[in-house]
């Protein structure tokens, strides 16, 4: 039981850290703001995310 909890916690952390979980949040948000429009597909969302990253470079430190 404990092991399963930890595995879930680690998976949760990795999905959050990498932004993988961002899609679910994006869909929730989309449904709230545009209840009638279909939610974007994962692929469409990734294109948006890449475009945003393109325009907002983040410096990595030394």
């Amino acid at each position: 039981m404990n092991v399963r909890r930890w595995v879930r916690a680690v998976r949760w952390y990795l999905r959050e850290l990498t932004g993988e979980a961002g899609y679910d949040r994006h869909c929730d948000r989309h449904r709230r703001h545009h209840p009638l429009a279909p939610v974007p597909t994962r692929r469409e969302y990734e294109v948006l995310r890449a475009r945003h990253r393109e325009d907002h470079p983040q410096s990595r430190c030394c």
């Binding site: 404990n2 909890r5 930890w6 879930r8 916690a9 949760w12 959050e16 979980a21 949040r25 929730d28 948000r29």
Partner: peptide, 12 residues
């Protein structure tokens, strides 16, 4: 809410 919710876990 949009915040990410941590599942029940062994974390403090």
């Amino acid at each position: 809410m949009p915040t990410s919710v941590m599942p029940e876990s062994g974390l403090p």
